[in-house]
């Protein structure tokens, strides 16, 4: 019933719809029951109508039965829903990251190969896609009804969302968290294409690759002046950094993930690596979120290409 009105275009959608239908059935039964009983009593016990009105006291058993039985049924729904939720929150290992930067009032998309698009997201069918999202200003929310997925996009913090498109076509994308006067114009579409079509589309965009763009930015913003292995400045070597544990000057250890790298660029003095002076200037406001994503991609690539990436002190 629900499929006819709203396309099921992701691997997750049918599962959600099954749960929705089960819920509709259960709640529908309760609602119809309540209304039916109400009408029946209204007719039977209306003033002036002869009916047996003897007895009928409060009974604990009745009370407990109609409380606990529906509750048990709904706990079943709860368990079912939690199972789906856990699935939605754990992207498969083979998912491909795509980076989304939201700002008033547009969606900027960057693919790992550097292809960029605005308000449109092309994805291949059958391939799990993991969106890594951040906002440049206020809270937004990435919502694709046909995929049954939604995730708020926060400023200053990455949030993730994954899906596998299962049906080719163009599906509406909405911002669903009110973000100012342009909120309803913050719409776009997700285009799901057969893998071959997708490859052709990607090829036609012919961009240099996200990491390559990051390398370019690495030089343009002057990062290389300090962070190049050959530099005379005492700054951390970034080769092999991604994913490695980093000891901080306060004695704690953090993992060099997306969030750490992001914060190290915009708020370098909040987490200073042990053994280094806090001399790095903040790039807050000087570098956009998209460029940060490119830089992070570049730092990640250093791990792969560097090969000799050393263990960190």
């Amino acid at each position: 019933m629900s499929a006819s009105s709203l396309p099921q275009a992701s691997s997750y959608a049918p599962a959600v719809d099954h749960l929705f239908d089960a819920m509709l059935l259960l709640c529908g039964a309760v609602a119809i029951g309540v209304f039916a009983v109400m009408f029946a009593f209204c007719i039977r016990y209306r003033r002036g109508h002869a009916a047996d009105r003897e007895g009928g006291n409060t009974r604990l058993g009745v009370e407990l039965a109609w409380t606990l039985v529906p509750f048990a049924l709904f706990l079943g729904i709860f368990g079912w829903s939690i199972g789906l939720w856990a699935k939605l929150r754990t992207p498969p290992a083979d998912s491909v990251p795509v980076y989304i930067v939201a700002k008033q009032w547009m969606w900027r998309v960057q693919h790992p190969d550097g292809t960029r698009e605005i308000d449109t997201l092309h994805v291949p069918l059958g391939q799990p896609v993991r969106l890594v999202m951040i906002s440049q200003d206020v809270v937004h929310s990435f919502y694709v009804p046909a995929f049954r997925v939604k995730q708020d996009v926060l400023p200053g913090r990455y949030t993730e969302l994954w899906f596998t498109a299962t049906r080719a076509g163009r599906f509406p994308l909405f911002c669903s968290e009110y973000c100012g006067v342009g909120h309803p114009s913050m719409r776009g579409s997700v285009v799901a294409m057969a893998p071959a079509d997708y490859a052709r589309w990607l090829h036609a965009q012919s961009s240099p690759g996200l990491a390559a763009r990051g390398a370019e930015l690495f030089r343009r913003f002057g990062c290389s002046g300090c962070h190049d292995p050959g530099s005379g400045v005492h700054a951390p070597d970034l080769r092999g950094l991604y994913g490695a544990p980093v000891p901080l000057s306060d004695g704690s250890v953090v993992r060099a993930d997306d969030r750490y790298l992001h914060d190290s660029i915009v708020l370098p003095r909040s987490q200073v690596a042990a053994g280094y002076a806090p001399i790095m200037p903040s790039y807050q406001g000087r570098i956009g979120e998209e460029d940060i994503l490119a830089l992070i991609a570049y730092v990640k690539s250093l791990e792969v290409e560097g090969g000799q990436g050393h263990a960190h002190p």
């Binding site: 749960l19 819920m23 709640c27 309760v30 829903s81 939605l88 968290e177």
Partner: peptide
């Protein structure tokens, strides 16, 4: 009853907002 739809996280993800 429709509140229960929204209490179920997996449904809330698509229905909220």
């Amino acid at each position: 009853l429709t509140g229960l739809f929204l209490a179920a996280v997996a449904l809330d993800v698509s229905l909220t907002d």
